[in-house]
Design a protein around this nucleic acid. Structure first.
Lengths: 116, 116
DNA sequence: ACAGGCTTTCACCAACTCTTCACCAACGCC
DNA sequence: GGCGTTGGTGAAGAGTTGGTGAAAGCCTGT
Protein backbone atom coordinates (compact mmCIF):
# COMPACT_ATOMS: atom_id res chain seq x y z
CA UNK A 1 0.00 0.00 0.00
CA UNK A 2 1.11 3.49 -0.80
CA UNK A 3 2.20 5.54 2.15
CA UNK A 4 1.23 9.15 1.76
CA UNK A 5 2.98 11.85 3.71
CA UNK A 6 2.20 15.53 3.53
CA UNK A 7 4.35 18.31 4.92
CA UNK A 8 2.40 21.53 4.60
CA UNK A 9 5.16 23.63 6.11
CA UNK A 10 7.49 22.49 3.36
CA UNK A 11 4.84 22.16 0.70
CA UNK A 12 6.04 18.63 0.15
CA UNK A 13 4.12 15.50 -0.68
CA UNK A 14 5.81 12.13 -0.43
CA UNK A 15 4.56 8.76 -1.53
CA UNK A 16 6.58 5.83 -0.29
CA UNK A 17 9.30 8.32 0.58
CA UNK A 18 9.45 9.67 -2.95
CA UNK A 19 8.87 13.39 -3.45
CA UNK A 20 6.03 14.25 -5.76
CA UNK A 21 7.79 17.48 -6.70
CA UNK A 22 4.71 19.66 -6.77
CA UNK A 23 5.09 23.33 -7.57
CA UNK A 24 3.57 25.96 -5.31
CA UNK A 25 0.26 26.19 -7.13
CA UNK A 26 0.06 22.47 -7.48
CA UNK A 27 0.59 22.03 -3.79
CA UNK A 28 -2.03 24.63 -2.97
CA UNK A 29 -4.58 22.74 -5.00
CA UNK A 30 -3.53 19.51 -3.41
CA UNK A 31 -3.66 20.93 0.08
CA UNK A 32 -7.05 22.57 -0.25
CA UNK A 33 -8.45 19.20 -1.19
CA UNK A 34 -6.41 17.08 1.20
CA UNK A 35 -7.39 19.25 4.17
CA UNK A 36 -10.97 18.44 3.31
CA UNK A 37 -10.49 14.76 2.72
CA UNK A 38 -13.59 12.87 1.63
CA UNK A 39 -15.49 16.07 1.08
CA UNK A 40 -16.49 17.42 -2.27
CA UNK A 41 -15.05 20.89 -2.78
CA UNK A 42 -16.58 23.05 -5.47
CA UNK A 43 -14.47 24.75 -8.10
CA UNK A 44 -15.73 28.07 -6.83
CA UNK A 45 -14.41 27.38 -3.37
CA UNK A 46 -11.08 26.07 -4.56
CA UNK A 47 -10.65 29.13 -6.72
CA UNK A 48 -11.68 31.49 -3.97
CA UNK A 49 -9.27 29.94 -1.51
CA UNK A 50 -6.27 30.05 -3.79
CA UNK A 51 -6.79 32.98 -6.12
CA UNK A 52 -9.08 35.12 -3.92
CA UNK A 53 -11.90 36.13 -6.11
CA UNK A 54 -14.89 34.81 -7.89
CA UNK A 55 -14.30 32.11 -10.42
CA UNK A 56 -14.65 33.73 -13.85
CA UNK A 57 -16.87 31.86 -16.27
CA UNK A 58 -14.98 29.40 -18.37
CA UNK A 59 -11.81 29.75 -16.33
CA UNK A 60 -10.10 26.37 -16.35
CA UNK A 61 -7.22 27.00 -13.97
CA UNK A 62 -8.51 24.64 -11.32
CA UNK A 63 -8.96 21.80 -13.78
CA UNK A 64 -5.53 22.28 -15.26
CA UNK A 65 -3.80 22.16 -11.91
CA UNK A 66 -5.81 19.20 -10.74
CA UNK A 67 -4.54 17.41 -13.77
CA UNK A 68 -0.93 18.36 -13.11
CA UNK A 69 -1.22 17.10 -9.56
CA UNK A 70 -2.85 13.90 -10.72
CA UNK A 71 -0.05 13.25 -13.18
CA UNK A 72 2.63 13.68 -10.56
CA UNK A 73 0.84 11.55 -8.00
CA UNK A 74 0.11 8.85 -10.50
CA UNK A 75 3.76 8.69 -11.42
CA UNK A 76 4.54 7.64 -7.86
CA UNK A 77 1.48 5.49 -7.23
CA UNK A 78 -0.05 4.23 -10.48
CA UNK A 79 -2.36 1.90 -8.60
CA UNK A 80 -3.95 4.63 -6.54
CA UNK A 81 -6.28 7.44 -7.28
CA UNK A 82 -6.41 10.45 -5.03
CA UNK A 83 -8.45 13.21 -6.60
CA UNK A 84 -11.92 12.30 -7.77
CA UNK A 85 -14.13 14.34 -10.03
CA UNK A 86 -17.72 15.11 -9.15
CA UNK A 87 -19.27 16.21 -12.37
CA UNK A 88 -20.88 19.61 -12.23
CA UNK A 89 -19.79 20.10 -8.63
CA UNK A 90 -16.07 19.89 -7.98
CA UNK A 91 -13.35 17.59 -6.72
CA UNK A 92 -12.82 15.31 -3.75
CA UNK A 93 -9.60 14.02 -2.23
CA UNK A 94 -9.73 10.42 -1.09
CA UNK A 95 -6.89 7.95 -1.56
CA UNK A 96 -8.38 4.84 -3.11
CA UNK A 97 -6.86 1.78 -4.63
CA UNK A 98 -7.52 1.19 -8.29
CA UNK A 99 -6.32 3.17 -11.27
CA UNK A 100 -9.28 5.50 -11.36
CA UNK A 101 -12.99 4.95 -11.09
CA UNK A 102 -13.49 8.47 -12.20
CA UNK A 103 -15.77 9.13 -9.37
CA UNK A 104 -19.25 10.19 -8.56
CA UNK A 105 -20.32 6.96 -6.95
CA UNK A 106 -18.06 4.53 -5.12
CA UNK A 107 -17.35 4.01 -1.48
CA UNK A 108 -15.89 6.43 0.95
CA UNK A 109 -13.36 4.85 3.15
CA UNK A 110 -9.66 5.21 3.25
CA UNK A 111 -7.02 6.55 5.51
CA UNK A 112 -4.46 8.92 4.30
CA UNK A 113 -1.93 10.17 6.69
CA UNK A 114 -1.87 13.87 7.09
CA UNK A 115 1.41 14.60 8.79
CA UNK A 116 2.02 18.16 9.68
CA UNK B 1 -31.10 0.21 9.48
CA UNK B 2 -30.00 2.50 6.73
CA UNK B 3 -28.17 5.59 7.86
CA UNK B 4 -28.97 8.54 5.65
CA UNK B 5 -26.65 11.50 5.51
CA UNK B 6 -27.23 14.60 3.44
CA UNK B 7 -24.61 17.26 2.77
CA UNK B 8 -26.29 20.10 0.95
CA UNK B 9 -23.10 22.13 0.60
CA UNK B 10 -21.50 19.26 -1.28
CA UNK B 11 -24.67 18.09 -2.97
CA UNK B 12 -23.94 14.66 -1.60
CA UNK B 13 -26.22 11.99 -0.24
CA UNK B 14 -24.74 9.05 1.62
CA UNK B 15 -26.44 5.90 2.76
CA UNK B 16 -24.41 3.81 5.16
CA UNK B 17 -21.39 5.86 4.10
CA UNK B 18 -21.86 5.04 0.46
CA UNK B 19 -22.26 7.92 -1.95
CA UNK B 20 -25.47 7.92 -3.94
CA UNK B 21 -23.71 9.72 -6.76
CA UNK B 22 -26.57 12.02 -7.61
CA UNK B 23 -26.08 14.56 -10.35
CA UNK B 24 -26.81 18.23 -9.72
CA UNK B 25 -30.41 18.08 -10.91
CA UNK B 26 -31.02 14.82 -9.15
CA UNK B 27 -29.79 16.32 -5.92
CA UNK B 28 -31.98 19.35 -6.37
CA UNK B 29 -35.04 17.15 -6.68
CA UNK B 30 -33.94 15.12 -3.71
CA UNK B 31 -33.27 18.19 -1.61
CA UNK B 32 -36.55 19.92 -2.38
CA UNK B 33 -38.34 16.85 -1.12
CA UNK B 34 -36.04 16.04 1.78
CA UNK B 35 -36.28 19.57 3.13
CA UNK B 36 -40.02 19.05 3.28
CA UNK B 37 -39.92 15.59 4.77
CA UNK B 38 -43.30 13.95 5.29
CA UNK B 39 -45.03 16.62 3.28
CA UNK B 40 -46.52 16.08 -0.13
CA UNK B 41 -44.97 18.46 -2.61
CA UNK B 42 -46.83 19.07 -5.82
CA UNK B 43 -45.14 18.76 -9.18
CA UNK B 44 -45.91 22.40 -9.80
CA UNK B 45 -44.00 23.44 -6.71
CA UNK B 46 -41.07 21.18 -7.37
CA UNK B 47 -40.84 22.51 -10.89
CA UNK B 48 -41.15 26.10 -9.81
CA UNK B 49 -38.43 25.72 -7.21
CA UNK B 50 -35.92 24.13 -9.51
CA UNK B 51 -36.69 25.41 -12.98
CA UNK B 52 -38.27 28.75 -12.06
CA UNK B 53 -41.41 28.86 -14.06
CA UNK B 54 -44.77 27.27 -14.41
CA UNK B 55 -44.87 23.60 -15.13
CA UNK B 56 -45.75 23.23 -18.82
CA UNK B 57 -48.52 20.73 -19.54
CA UNK B 58 -47.20 17.30 -20.28
CA UNK B 59 -43.72 18.16 -19.03
CA UNK B 60 -42.31 15.04 -17.39
CA UNK B 61 -39.02 16.35 -16.09
CA UNK B 62 -39.95 15.98 -12.46
CA UNK B 63 -41.09 12.40 -12.88
CA UNK B 64 -37.98 11.46 -14.77
CA UNK B 65 -35.66 12.85 -12.16
CA UNK B 66 -37.63 11.35 -9.30
CA UNK B 67 -37.09 8.03 -10.94
CA UNK B 68 -33.37 8.58 -11.37
CA UNK B 69 -33.07 9.48 -7.71
CA UNK B 70 -35.12 6.45 -6.69
CA UNK B 71 -32.91 4.14 -8.69
CA UNK B 72 -29.75 5.45 -7.12
CA UNK B 73 -31.14 5.34 -3.60
CA UNK B 74 -32.55 1.89 -4.08
CA UNK B 75 -29.17 0.66 -5.20
CA UNK B 76 -27.76 1.56 -1.81
CA UNK B 77 -30.78 0.63 0.31
CA UNK B 78 -32.99 -1.91 -1.48
CA UNK B 79 -35.04 -2.45 1.64
CA UNK B 80 -36.02 1.15 2.02
CA UNK B 81 -38.24 3.48 0.13
CA UNK B 82 -37.72 7.20 0.31
CA UNK B 83 -39.83 8.98 -2.26
CA UNK B 84 -43.51 8.16 -2.32
CA UNK B 85 -45.96 8.99 -5.07
CA UNK B 86 -49.24 10.71 -4.36
CA UNK B 87 -51.32 10.13 -7.42
CA UNK B 88 -52.57 13.27 -9.03
CA UNK B 89 -50.75 15.43 -6.52
CA UNK B 90 -47.04 15.01 -6.26
CA UNK B 91 -44.34 13.35 -4.21
CA UNK B 92 -43.43 12.95 -0.56
CA UNK B 93 -40.08 12.19 1.02
CA UNK B 94 -40.23 9.80 3.97
CA UNK B 95 -37.70 7.06 4.61
CA UNK B 96 -39.66 3.89 5.26
CA UNK B 97 -38.67 0.28 5.55
CA UNK B 98 -40.01 -2.07 2.92
CA UNK B 99 -39.18 -2.17 -0.74
CA UNK B 100 -42.05 0.02 -1.85
CA UNK B 101 -45.65 0.26 -0.80
CA UNK B 102 -46.37 2.83 -3.45
CA UNK B 103 -47.90 4.89 -0.74
CA UNK B 104 -51.03 6.50 0.50
CA UNK B 105 -53.83 6.98 -1.90
CA UNK B 106 -55.51 10.14 -0.68
CA UNK B 107 -58.08 11.65 -2.96
CA UNK B 108 -57.99 15.06 -4.47
CA UNK B 109 -61.63 15.64 -3.72
CA UNK B 110 -63.26 19.01 -3.97
CA UNK B 111 -63.34 19.36 -0.23
CA UNK B 112 -59.78 18.25 -0.03
CA UNK B 113 -57.45 19.76 2.46
CA UNK B 114 -54.33 21.23 1.04
CA UNK B 115 -51.53 21.34 3.52
CA UNK B 116 -49.40 24.40 3.19
C1' DA C 1 18.73 40.42 -22.84
C1' DC C 2 18.43 35.38 -22.27
C1' DA C 3 17.36 30.90 -20.31
C1' DG C 4 14.67 28.01 -17.50
C1' DG C 5 10.83 27.05 -14.82
C1' DC C 6 6.19 28.02 -13.36
C1' DT C 7 1.55 29.87 -14.31
C1' DT C 8 -2.28 30.96 -17.20
C1' DT C 9 -4.85 30.56 -21.25
C1' DC C 10 -6.52 28.35 -25.48
C1' DA C 11 -8.52 24.95 -28.43
C1' DC C 12 -10.08 20.50 -29.34
C1' DC C 13 -12.20 16.39 -27.97
C1' DA C 14 -14.24 13.02 -24.70
C1' DA C 15 -17.46 12.12 -21.13
C1' DC C 16 -21.46 13.07 -18.77
C1' DT C 17 -25.97 15.23 -17.92
C1' DC C 18 -30.35 17.22 -19.21
C1' DT C 19 -34.40 17.12 -21.70
C1' DT C 20 -37.74 15.15 -24.43
C1' DC C 21 -40.26 11.44 -26.66
C1' DA C 22 -42.74 7.25 -26.95
C1' DC C 23 -44.80 3.43 -25.00
C1' DC C 24 -46.72 0.92 -21.24
C1' DA C 25 -48.62 0.29 -16.47
C1' DA C 26 -51.34 1.97 -12.68
C1' DC C 27 -55.08 4.55 -11.04
C1' DG C 28 -59.78 6.68 -10.62
C1' DC C 29 -64.26 6.99 -12.32
C1' DC C 30 -68.41 5.39 -14.81
C1' DG D 1 -64.98 -4.16 -17.30
C1' DG D 2 -63.97 -0.08 -20.21
C1' DC D 3 -62.17 4.46 -20.70
C1' DG D 4 -59.58 8.56 -19.89
C1' DT D 5 -55.88 10.32 -17.11
C1' DT D 6 -51.54 10.19 -14.56
C1' DG D 7 -47.13 8.11 -13.48
C1' DG D 8 -43.15 4.69 -14.59
C1' DT D 9 -39.61 3.60 -17.65
C1' DG D 10 -36.06 3.20 -21.35
C1' DA D 11 -33.78 5.42 -24.81
C1' DA D 12 -31.76 9.06 -27.87
C1' DG D 13 -30.22 13.73 -29.26
C1' DA D 14 -28.70 18.09 -27.76
C1' DG D 15 -26.17 20.66 -24.75
C1' DT D 16 -22.84 21.22 -21.00
C1' DT D 17 -18.72 20.16 -18.35
C1' DG D 18 -14.17 18.12 -17.73
C1' DG D 19 -9.64 16.08 -19.68
C1' DT D 20 -5.76 17.11 -22.15
C1' DG D 21 -1.71 18.93 -24.89
C1' DA D 22 0.46 22.82 -26.01
C1' DA D 23 1.28 27.71 -26.69
C1' DA D 24 1.72 32.17 -24.59
C1' DG D 25 2.79 35.02 -20.63
C1' DC D 26 5.56 35.93 -16.28
C1' DC D 27 9.42 35.92 -13.07
C1' DT D 28 13.73 35.29 -11.41
C1' DG D 29 18.48 34.76 -11.68
C1' DT D 30 22.45 35.13 -14.54
Amino acid sequence: MANLEIRPAEMQVLIDDQRAGLTVREFQIFWVLAERQDRVVTREEIYRLIWDGRLPRRNRSVDVFVRKVRVKLEKLAPEWSYIHTHFGIGYRFSPEPGGDQSSASSAASSNGNLNS
